[in-house]
Amino acid sequence: MEQNLDKLLDDTMEGPGVMGVICADKQGLCYSAKGTVSVGSAGIIASLSQQAALLVPESSSAPVICLESDKGNVLIKTHQDVTIAIHKMPTY
């Protein structure tokens, strides 16, 4: 069931600088969210990843999106039909 996904997100939250994690399907349905991220942002990150993939249509894998701001970076990546976003502070 979803215990594996919850455990994965919990393990990801333990990473350095990670403040939030969210996982959604390709239609924007939120599977799970941890930390600072909002459940309502699931549709946005799924759509953003799909739009970014259109920039490089010949690529077989979806690109990694990094939204940089003063409040940290948001990394977005789609694998198959699952999109995941990680909110983390940059580490140097």
Partner: peptide, 30 residues
């Protein structure tokens, strides 16, 4: 922001690996 270093390889590996694991874990959801 524009003058900062590009996205680190560690971050790219982190999100790539996490996305792959999340897809595997999502297969168990019923």
């Amino acid at each position: 922001v524009l003058s900062e270093e590009p996205v680190s390889v560690d971050d790219i590996n982190l999100i790539t690996q996490t996305a792959a694991d999340a897809w595997k874990a999502s297969q168990d959801i019923q």
